[in-house]
Nucleic acid binder design. Structure first.
Length: 217
DNA sequence: ATCCCGAGGG
DNA sequence: CCCTCTGGAT
């Protein structure tokens, strides 16, 4: 079962795979991605309308009251750090980039609160630049389907996926892995009985590996 | 108790 | 590499 077969199968399963964060601009998307750390897109979509109503532009957010920002996103996890980060990030967008979000990976990751994964999502989702963001879903699916080794770091997983998948299909593959991980091959209670990839799945070995690693502590 | 489209700091 | 920050859903 090679990668191209798996991707075509995933396309059949999820013909409508797409980014589920709500946004109307580059600014809104970047902030939404930063906020999505360790929470669900659904939770982010609940707080962003009020946040962007109060702070419609990078300048407004940069000049915004930190307590007000915290209150707007308080229902998300890590809200303290996130509020500080999006305010600082908005300041750079306003001061340095004239209110626009830069597209280069280097410039993106230099923004406060923007790491490798956030920058990659921005590139693939907004600028249509080939990238392979590795989040919790992509990492889990890659290890279960054998695209990466259990102990691989997210950067190693990213490198291996980029090598196995044609560059022109990175963005599509990323989105398909997300949907597969979110709605089918979940961390808990995945739908193994209906899974077309059961014969190659390393889920059980992966679980055993994780238990063993945990026991070491 | 574990997981959710992580990043920054040590 | 590790740890911490953090609330809501399951």
């Amino acid at each position: 079962m090679d990668v191209s077969f798996i991707l075509s199968k995933l396309q059949q399963m999820f013909p409508d795979a797409h980014c589920e964060l709500n946004y109307t601009s580059d600014y809104e998307l970047l902030i939404a991605i930063i906020l999505s750390a360790q929470t669900t897109d659904k939770a982010v979509n609940k707080v962003t309308p009020a946040l962007f109503h109060h702070f419609p532009t990078p300048r407004a957010l940069a000049d915004g009251d930190l307590k007000r920002i915290e209150k707007d996103i308080a229902r998300l996890g890590l809200y303290h750090a996130k509020a500080k980060n999006i305010k600082a990030c908005a300041k750079v967008l306003a001061d340095v980039y004239d209110g626009n979000v830069p597209s280069s990976f280097k410039k993106l990751t230099e923004l406060p609160g923007v790491g490798r994964k956030t920058a990659s999502v921005m590139q693939t989702e907004y600028f249509d630049i080939p990238a392979m963001p590795v989040d919790t879903h992509v990492e889990r699916i890659s290890k279960r389907l054998g695209f990466a080794k259990f102990g691989d770091s997210v950067e190693t997983v990213e490198r291996k996926l980029k090598r196995k998948i044609p560059r022109s299909e990175w963005n599509m593959a990323h989105q398909l892995f997300i949907f597969f991980g979110r709605y089918f091959c979940m961390a808990r209670n995945p739908k193994c009985e209906e899974c077309p990839f059961l014969s190659i799945c390393k889920k059980d070995k992966f679980e055993a590996y994780k238990r063993k690693e945990k026991a070491k502590q």
